[in-house]
Amino acid sequence: MWNVLVGGLTAEVWEHYPRPEPDTVLPTARPAAGIERLSFDTASGTLRREGTAAADLRSPQYLEPHPTLPVLYAAEFAHSARLVAYDTAPDGALTPRAAVASLGTMAAAVAVHPSGSHAYVGHLVDGVLAAVALGPDGSPGRVEAVAPAAGASLHHLRVTPDGTALLVTDFGRDELCVHRLDGDGALSGEPTRIRFPAGSRPRHLELDPSGRAVYVVGESDGALYVLDAGGHVPTAIRSVQEIAPGGSPSELHLHPEGGTLFVGVRKADLIASFAVDGAGGARLRATVPSGGSSPRTLAVHPGGRHLLVGNWHSNELALFGIDGAHRLHPMSVPVLLPSPSSLVFTRR
């Protein structure tokens, strides 16, 4: 048995932040109460909503677990954003641990160093990148902010598995930034920047386990970018592929076995599957309906047999089975859930 923790946008976000394109197409997403908790039986494929796990925060639209401790971090998509830490019980219940101001506006993502020494928070509106020192128990402490470049708008962050670099998509400047990290996980020196086509709006990224490729989706141009990399650090764009005409990609995740990349595509309401070879090759294999409207988030279960999709405008989670050839097939009736924006699996 597993838990699924789901972050979403709470009601006050629309009071001070207009819905950005492409989310204005069908503005039907209902406000979330905070972080929702569901139980997931992988043997039977049963997904059941258990209730609100945390309601004492503003728009926890991105969640990230600590690499070794039962601690969950939530980035608040809010003015005067915070990084909020929760203790996670075996049944998925959350207990507030601590919160710190992340020194930016509208936190869009958080990543945690493999050693657990730091969390990094990227902000969409003002482009601030914050490094938050974490204590031995996972509590957030000292926060240091990097002055943003003009026009920066950060959307996603990933730390390389060896902990030597932080990769950041800059949605506003059409760049992928590579920040070097020292032995303690602190930001070190000026970042290197990989330019994307103007107006492509690089949104989310994924690392191939081979270390030789990084995958990035462009929100506005509907493309999958494959970047050459060494040790998971990207060096240059290798290829560009259209995913679905008129679509707007959101998140992307690799199957745990590798070989298949799943991409959520809003506007087209599809999940695209790419065959990837770990050396920079990528080929569109299939597309299937997302099981709802506007697939904003998706996650492959660690066991590799299920994909969960958060359809934002239709306010529901859709469950797909994954067969031995990594093909998707829908399972059961979607679970109603307001504004699903981020998914995390934890084991019971």
Rank of each mutant, 00 (worst) to 15 (best):
M1Y: 15
L5H: 03
L5Y: 09
A11W: 08
V13T: 11
W14A: 13
R19E: 11
A32H: 05
A32M: 07
E36Y: 14
S39Y: 11
S39T: 14
F40W: 06
A43N: 14
S44Q: 13
R49L: 14
P67W: 07
A75V: 01
E76L: 09
E76W: 07
S80I: 09
S80R: 15
V84T: 14
V84A: 08
T95Q: 12
A101E: 14
H113F: 09
V125Y: 11
G127M: 09
A133P: 05
A133Q: 10
G138Q: 07
V143M: 02
V146Y: 12
A149D: 10
A150W: 05
A150K: 14
H155P: 00
D162N: 13
A165Y: 11
T169R: 04
E175I: 03
L181K: 08
R193C: 07
R201T: 02
R203K: 02
A213E: 04
G231M: 12
G231A: 06
A244G: 08
L261M: 09
F262L: 03
G264R: 00
A272N: 03
A272S: 11
F274S: 09
R283H: 14
R285I: 04
G292R: 11
R296H: 02
G310I: 00
G310L: 07
N311Y: 04
G321F: 02
I322H: 01
G324N: 11
L328W: 04
P330H: 13
V333C: 12
P334F: 07
V335P: 13
P340T: 06
V344K: 06
F345G: 00
